[in-house]
Each structure stands twice: as C-alpha cells, then as structure tokens.
C-alpha cells in the first residue's frame, strides 16, 4: 500500500490489493436503525496476514460493521464474504461453522461472569469440539492462557480480574479455537497507557503465532499506530480514506485531520 486510496459514493473504489489474497470482502454494505443510516455502501477488504485498523468517531458504525461480519446484526443490503462464506445468506449451521474460524474480542471482554476463567475457556471447546478429556482440555487452556501471560489466573472469576486481564482472557477464549481471522472491538478502551501497550503487543504476537488476519476497531491512535499495517477511516457511515498511519496523519480531510491532531 503505497498510495492513499480515497473512497466516496461518487468516486469509484480503487483496488489496493497488489495481488494479495483477500479473506474478507465487503461490498456496498448498508445498515440502518429506524431512520438513522449507520452504514452507507461500505466497501472493505481484509488481506491474508494483515492487521487492518478501522478508525472513526464513536457512533460511526465501526462496531456495527464487525457485528454484521459475524452475523450478530443482519445488514439491510450488500455482500460480506468471509473465507468464502457469504455471511448474510448463511443458515444457522453454516454460520456456526464460520464463527469457529473468526475470533471476536468484545469491547467489554464479555467474559461469562458466573464461570471461572477455566470454565470460560472450556465453554466453546466442549460445545464445538465435543472435547471432554480433562487432560486435553487442560493443555489447551493452559496454552491459550500462557499466550496471553495469564496462566496463573485459571481458577479466578472475572470479578477478581483487572480490566486488562479481562481483555487478555477474552482474547485467550477466542484463540483457543485457533481462528483464522480476529476481530478486535476497541481492544484498549478504558485501559491505562501501559496496559494498552501490552494489549497492542499481544495483538501483534497473536498474528505471529496464530497467523491470523485481523480487523481492529479503535479510536486509540497509539493502538492504530502500533498494530495497524493499514488503516481505514470510517466517518458518517462510509470508508473515507485508507492508507498507512503516516499517510493517514497527513490527509487534508478536516474530519480526519481533527481526529489525528486532537
């Protein structure tokens, strides 16, 4: 990606893949809630092995976009193709098949608070892999927890963990299914700068070890800079600009300029 690629409804989208394999392809995606248009013909590609950061103000539809990708929200129009699955048209079984290959890290971690960390990690394994062997379960759980540096927290409840620890456990719970794609929704929201940095490093190390392609939703520019190979700006329900962090920070668009020079 050498040049900044601009998008708008009037400008034709320029292909920017340089021949790379696309694992997520989104075309003309639209979503409204009542009379409020959230996503307006969004086009997006995620290429194999890259970390794509989506930046934008609160309420511009970033979270709605990734929730559409995993079938949590049904789009009004458009196409979402992930790993060959046409998401809006999948039946329940196909959707679950896809979801096993896509890890989703929630903004609030979304740990099951009535379960210990071990039970949180066992939950998808027992139900999807039908894995009940205690030793195998234990090995997988410890491996996932060691990857996020929290093996010692295995028998703690979420209420006993700090915000950063919860984020890590949330990531470990998705990693345990060995996903091909990771979706991070505001991974550093509400965390102090040091913990944020640790989470950013974790996002990069997850890519190294699990060879994942990731979409990172954030409005934290440090997170965007440390984790993103490519950035796209989602403003007013549309992808406005894309490029590297350096390129984005030099864009003339007043909204994006304001975002980078806050």
């Amino acid at each position: 990606m050498n040049a900044i690629v601009e998008h708008s409804q009037t400008k034709k989208r320029v292909a920017a893949d340089n021949g790379r394999e696309s694992v997520v392809t989104i075309r003309d995606l639209e979503k409204s809630f009542g009379d409020r248009d959230i996503l307006k013909k969004v086009n997006l590609d995620l290429f194999k092995g890259e970390n794509l950061v989506i930046i934008g103000k609160s309420g511009t539809g970033k979270s709605v976009l990734i929730k559409c990708m995993v079938g949590l929200i049904k789009p009004d129009a458009g196409h979402i193709n992930i790993l060959g699955y046409d998401v809006p048209y999948l039946n329940e079984a196909e959707l679950n098949e896809l979801r096993l290959q896509v890890g989703f890290s929630f903004q609030g971690s979304a740990l099951y608070d009535s379960m210990t960390v071990r039970e949180n990690l066992e939950f998808p394994l027992k139900r999807n892999m039908k894995l009940f062997d205690r030793n195998k379960l234990n090995d997988l759980i410890i491996e996932a927890l060691e990857d996020v540096g929290l093996a010692h927290a295995v028998d703690q409840f979420p209420s006993e963990l700090s915000g950063g620890m919860k984020k890590r456990i949330g990531i470990a719970r998705t990693l345990i299914l060995k996903p091909k794609i990771m979706l991070y929704d505001e991974p550093t929201a509400g965390l102090d700068p040091i913990t944020s940095r640790e989470i950013n490093e974790l996002i990069n190390s997850v890519r190294e070890k699990y060879h994942t392609s990731s979409i990172i939703i954030t409005h934290d520019l440090t997170c965007a800079k440390q984790t993103g190979d490519r950035l796209v700006a989602l403003f007013n329900g549309q992808i406005q600009v894309e490029g590297s962090f350096k390129e984005m920070s030099q864009v003339d668009d007043p909204e994006i300029k304001a975002f980078f020079n806050y």
């Binding site: 929730k67 995993v70 079938g71 949590l72 679950n96 098949e97 979801r99 096993l100 896509v102 989703f104 929630f106 903004q107 609030g108 979304a110 740990l111 099951y112 608070d113 939950f123 998808p124 139900r127 999807n128 949330g170 719970r173 998705t174 299914l177």
Partner: peptide, 17 residues
C-alpha cells in the same frame, strides 16, 4: 445483564447455541 454486557453475543460468536 448478560445481554447488555455482550455475554450472550460472545456465546453466539463462539459457535455455541
């Protein structure tokens, strides 16, 4: 509270019912 804290969504996206 499980719904608003996205715990139910987390179960769904992990392929469980």
């Amino acid at each position: 509270s499980m719904r608003v804290s996205e715990q139910i969504d987390a179960m769904e996206v992990s392929g469980t019912r």
